[in-house]
Amino acid sequence: MDGAMILEWVLKSVFILLFMTAGFAYTTLFERRMIAKFQARIGPNRAGPWGLLQPVADGLKLIFKEELIPAHADKVMFVLAPVITVIPSLIVTAVVPWGGVVDLFGRKVPLYLADVNVGLLYIMAVTSISVYGITLAGWASNNKYATLGGLRSTAQMISYEIAMGFCFVVPVLLAGSLSLVDIVEAQKKIWFIFLQPGAAIILAITMYAEVNRAPFDMPEAEQELTAGYHSEYSGMKFALFFMAEYIKMIAVSMIFATLFLGGYHFPFVDQIPVIGPYLGPFVLLAKTLVLLFGFIWVRATLPRIRYDRLMAFGWKVLFPLSLLSVLVTAAMVLLVK
């Protein structure tokens, strides 16, 4: 563990944090432009060329907004809740590999921060922690709508986390390892989505529920709950919730691409001479972008599901189906062996 090694880790960590934050800014712009296209509008195009400076303008606006704390709110929790929401979404991608080992500045650099042998469990742990921020925000606001929104999102996220966990088991069974690097390497020949399309579809649905996006954006249903858990938040505290939602979107897209779409592998890309091994991150980013477009497409297309149907769908449809897909995968793995 020499000094250069520590420097390498620090640089990678800083890069991931900065990338996620910048990614958040431009995902909002991407979403607004795309939704505008879906609705035959133009969308934000005034700030900079193609509206590229729009996120900067939004950020400046939010900084100058007044920060309100409601009367009789629990002040400590009210301030802590946005922070608790953002941190898990920033750190969850620490175990996602961006590429293989490459030569950079004369030393072998693996393009991943941490290859721990419990990588997938780490993702489970961090996503299960991320429920707290939303729940506490709802409770600390001292507002009925916010509390209801917080409770709904807790129930929703816990329910869908179970099906999500079982879908995580499928790539683990197929690759024989909990490490995400091993899972990606096992998909060099064939992506897991072709081996287990059912589990991939269930994981995609639970992902939408896990990040509270349409059609599962129940916690913030505007019409019935004003804005759910963040109705009382303003200024930068509101921006933190907004940030957490979009960073989570990017993070789950990257995780899905890693688990079922072959991560940084794409056929023939690593055989390109010289630059081949360096293209891993770009392949991963391209897959992430496609999945993000999926998020936006679904939001522009599907109406929101009613709350009781959402819970029934999670427990009575997705949960048994995910169990079944684990069973089928286990049988498949045993038969092939």
Binding site: L121, M124, A125, T127, S128, I129, V131, Y132, T135, L136, G138, W139, T147, G150, L151, T154, A155, I158
Partner: peptide, 19 residues
Amino acid sequence: SQITVYAGSVIVLFLFVVM
């Protein structure tokens, strides 16, 4: 496992019931 099971699930349910 400790974080996933205890911190992530059990206490969330506690909070849920209390609220």
